[in-house]
Design a protein around this nucleic acid. Structure first.
Length: 302
DNA sequence: CGCGGTCAAGTGGCT
DNA sequence: AGCCACTTGACCGCG
């Protein structure tokens, strides 16, 4: 079991998600920002390894505007060597990597222009992981998309987009995650049966949108969609921020809730991405928590 | 130098 | 109809 956090480290004095406004695009600026982002990524990965954190989500902004038509720079070529170097570090230290394209990736949209942009964005993510030299145990996670008043039709559109529009380099890494509004775990499992896509279980979304499945069974059925070279199941974990609207992610980890969750999943091994706002701070607490709680059979990798 | 409006992109649900 | 939330706040013009 590995513990991770997304995109940003608040202890390291750099950012790996710098971007700029489209209006201020220039090739020089683009390369400068990418270079700084990749240097920061290296620093953050080193911090993580030193801290025993072996799971990390890389920001989709690491290469800003990567799939945008404004881009007249072959970033794959210019940054390829640097990416290869970072990838060697990742593999040497057995760091698990995920990426989470943002909400604009909707491959089941009923607008073909939206679908086309989504495919290009997924290809960017796949190229990025490919240049790192990562196997399919690195994952790109997306939500299923919109419903458009016709869930069955929209799910069918997702499946046909998957088969017809995504090439192997994208399919290799693609995973789907249950969300808190449109597509619950059961929907994702159904798509998984028809496509073979592994399902990332999000416990917090599941608590907000479900069909009554207890967490242990939900986890087991999501875990069963993982196999082959895809590695251990990935799980997104969060809890409710007290006093806020339902659905707001916690500022800091609730270690009781976290221990209960892991205990509920005993018998399964998996990697946990903490979607908690204070990032590496909670990851360190989670690792402590797993290492010190005798009720938890699963040990943490470090 | 700090503040705040706005930022490439979508969708659904809230008020 | 407009605003907000989402995996993540940061950029940049203005005073």
């Amino acid at each position: 079991m590995k513990i991770g956090y997304p995109c940003i480290n608040r202890s390291v004095n750099c950012r790996g998600n710098r971007t700029f406004r489209l209006a201020s695009y220039s090739p020089e600026r683009f390369i400068d920002v990418c270079t700084a982002n990749l240097d920061c990524l290296s620093q953050v990965l080193r911090y993580n390894v030193a801290s025993g954190i072996l799971f990390f989500r890389i920001s989709s902004d690491i290469i800003p505007f990567a799939s945008h038509p404004v881009l007249d720079v072959a970033w794959q070529e210019i940054l390829g060597e640097k990416l290869g170097e970072i990838g060697r570090y990742i593999r040497a230290n057995r760091i698990r990597i995920s990426m989470h394209p943002d909400q604009f990736v909707v491959i089941n949209s009923n607008r073909s222009d939206v679908v086309e942009r989504s495919v290009r964005e997924l290809e960017y993510h796949a190229d990025f992981l490919g240049l790192l030299g990562l196997s399919e145990d690195a994952r790109i996670q997306i939500h299923v998309g919109g419903v458009y008043g016709d869930r069955v039709g929209a799910m069918d559109r997702f499946i046909s987009s998957y088969h017809e529009l995504l090439d192997d380099r994208v399919r290799k890494y693609l995973s789907i995650e249950n969300d808190d509004r449109c597509y619950c775990l059961a929907d994702c499992l159904e798509i998984s049966r028809k496509t073979g896509i592994p399902v990332i279980f999000d416990n917090f979304h599941h608590s907000l949108l479900n069909r009554g499945e207890p967490v242990s069974g939900a986890m087991a059925s999501a875990a069963a969609t993982w196999g082959g070279g895809c590695g251990l199941p990935m799980v997104d974990y969060s809890s409710q921020e007290p006093g806020k609207r339902p659905g707001v992610h916690a500022e800091t980890i609730d270690t009781d809730d976290f221990s209960t969750f892991v205990e509920t999943c005993s018998g399964l091994d998996f990697d946990i991405m903490l979607e908690i706002k204070d990032k590496e701070k909670s990851a360190l607490q989670a690792i402590d928590c797993l290492s010190s709680d005798p009720r938890l059979i699963t040990g943490v990798d470090s």
